[in-house]
């Protein structure tokens, strides 16, 4: 069972306290009417399905209730880091120095 670092509670907690919430950094368009049908379809349905580093959302549903983002390797199932919602997408594992909102 994974340990997941909640960036709001700032501590690792067992996986069963969390719910998965899909791919991260897919912002809802400000004006959906401006999107073509194809663009809207992409927003709705098309996902990365990454092998390796994957940006995804989790919710500490049986804890603080907050949604946050994570970088997880889908091959090894290990978390590289978690960070607060609204923080920019981290770059490569070794180059990114941004604010994690609580380092993993």
């Amino acid at each position: 069972m994974l340990l997941i670092h909640c960036p709001y509670c700032d501590e690792p907690r067992p996986e069963i306290e969390f719910g998965y919430a899909g791919e991260a950094h897919i912002a809802r368009p400000i004006n959906p009417d401006d999107l073509s049908d194809a663009e809207w379809e992409t927003y709705l349905f098309v996902r990365t399905n990454a092998r390796g580093r994957h940006f995804e959302r989790w919710r500490h549903v049986h804890g603080c209730g907050r949604f946050f983002n994570a970088v997880r390797d889908t091959v090894t199932d290990t978390f590289e880091r978690t960070y607060k919602a609204g923080v920019a997408r981290p770059g490569e594992a070794d180059s990114w120095t941004g604010d994690t909102g609580g380092i993993v």
């Binding site: 919710r59 949604f67 919602a85």
Partner: peptide, 9 residues
């Protein structure tokens, strides 16, 4: 909560 926290904070 999802929309409130992440789309319209």
């Amino acid at each position: 909560e999802d929309y409130l926290q992440t789309e319209w904070p």
